[in-house]
Simulated assay, not measured.
Amino acid sequence: MLGKAWQFARRHKTKIAAVSAITGGLVLAGKLAESKFKQWQEEETRKMLEQIKKQHHYENTEKTSNETLKSLFPALIKTIEKSLDSEPILERIKNQTGNKIELWNELKVLSFARALAMIITGTQLVLLLKLQLNILSGILYIKQPSQVLSSRLQERFMALSQNFISFSVPKICEQIREKMIQLLALSLKEKFTITQLEAFFQTTLLQLDLPGFQKLIIAPDGDHISQPLNPDEHLLLDDLINNIVELLEHEDYAKIFRIGLQTSLSNVFDYLAESYLSHESYKENGLRSEVRLPVAKLIPILNQSITVYQSVLHALIKHYTIREYSANIYESFCQAPPDAIAKPSLSTLWPF
Rank of each mutant, 00 (worst) to 15 (best):
Q55V: 04
Q335S: 11
P74A: 12
L265N: 03
D339F: 15
E284M: 13
L208R: 04
I244V: 15
S166D: 15
K343I: 12
I142H: 07
T123P: 07
L208Q: 08
L216S: 10
T321N: 11
A117V: 07
V148I: 15
A340K: 15
Q144S: 11
K255Q: 14
S275N: 14
E290D: 12
L261W: 01
L136H: 04
Y276R: 11
A5N: 03
I299T: 14
P338A: 11
S161C: 03
T64N: 11
R11K: 15
N285R: 08
E87C: 00
N99A: 12
A327V: 02
I52C: 05
H57M: 04
L160V: 04
K13Y: 10
L128I: 08
L149D: 01
L216P: 01
C173H: 00
A159D: 10
I165Q: 05
T123K: 05
F333E: 01
Q147G: 03
I93E: 04
L183S: 07
E233H: 04
E246Y: 05
V312N: 04
H224G: 00
W6M: 13
N95M: 06
Y325W: 14
E249Y: 02
I225E: 07
S20V: 14
S275R: 03
L302H: 08
S20T: 14
R92Q: 14
T204M: 06
Y320M: 06
L84C: 06
A33L: 14
K78E: 07
E280Y: 08
R10A: 10
I89M: 05
L32M: 14
R114N: 05
L313E: 01
L272W: 03
L293V: 04
G222T: 14
A29P: 01
Q51D: 05
I120T: 09
I139V: 15
E246V: 08
H12R: 12
V19G: 01
W350P: 00
E42L: 13
N105Q: 15
F167A: 09
K15H: 13
S71D: 13
H279F: 06
Q175L: 05
Q41W: 10
A29E: 06
K31R: 10
E233L: 08
I322C: 03
N267G: 00
H314T: 11
S275Y: 14
K215M: 05
I142C: 03
G3Y: 02
S150H: 03
G30R: 10
Q7V: 11
A296P: 00
L140T: 07
L72V: 11
P338V: 05
L208S: 01
Y253H: 13
